[in-house]
Amino acid sequence: MATRDRLAETFPPQSFARRAGIVAGVGVPAGLAIMSFIVWVFPPLYDAFWGATCSTADVWLVCSGFLQRGFTAGILIGITAPVVGAYLVNRQMALIGEALAHTAFGGVAIGLFIGAAVPGLDYPLLFALVAAAIAALGMQWIAVNTDGYADIPIAIMLTGGFAVGIAVISYGVVFSATVESYLFGDILFVPFRNVQLMVGLTLVVAGVVAATHKQLLFITFDREAARLARIDVWFYDTLLIVLTALVVVAAMQVLGAILVAGMLVIPVAAAMQVTGSFNGGLVLSVVFGQVAVLGGILVSYALNIATGATIILVAIAVYLLALLVGTVLGR
């Protein structure tokens, strides 16, 4: 029964081919434009920005290449993760991000293994992207054919992805420091090409959300009314879960596979405490995301503790503060 109703949500049936056409027609040129941007335009912009910042405030914090890359990566994640998280959290799908992150870790492990054998393919984040995308589509397939985004498939995917990662790592020869940087995140270890990848992913996420915000909000708030308005809810479900996979892979370098979901969820949860409007909450959650990232980097630098963990702890502190303010405001 549930399956039949869910399948019925894919209507109108003929729209899929049309939509695939639109996606390809817009996606391919946009993809090429983003590629050219991150390869040719972004690097000089990046150098100019940090060069200017460093000559204005000549401190190690902004002049070190490590921290420049870390700050950039963190700021990008502080934008994309809460934006996508806003839809996920309000659909009770928060843990999907965690499951996808664990599967992405499996992809990283495979990527490290292959990269060790074939140096030309030493690009583990791309493998993570592929693994997370496959997991996202698999999750969508399971949701269509069973009872939606139930916690059993999520638990299976979460542990399964991790198991694959650990199995591959234990079989191959990989430096444990490298593995740890993907598990727990290491903001001082973000290579420039990963910053470029994150810029690309951020542009994709921002562009897609800007174009489809209304549809994503509608299916988040009231699926049935969205179906009545003849919005293809399964197309937008798939879109949202694929966007989540992109964000998770982008954030993994900074936060690590284990902590990624925190950035999707906590800033959004904090914003929900102090605002009554979805759009207002979206903006506020990005602000909170930035506070968490920048505050987290500074605190971790000052106290010499792990950055990914500090970012999440600062985010939780912001959440608790918002909870307090929300209670006082009577929201």
Partner: peptide, 21 residues
């Protein structure tokens, strides 16, 4: 809808959804 109990969304935002189609 289930979401309207927890989700931060204003009356105007809900009514606007009528225009999304």
């Amino acid at each position: 809808s289930e979401a309207d109990a927890t989700m931060p969304v204003t009356v105007r935002e809900v009514v606007r959804m009528g225009r999304y189609a």
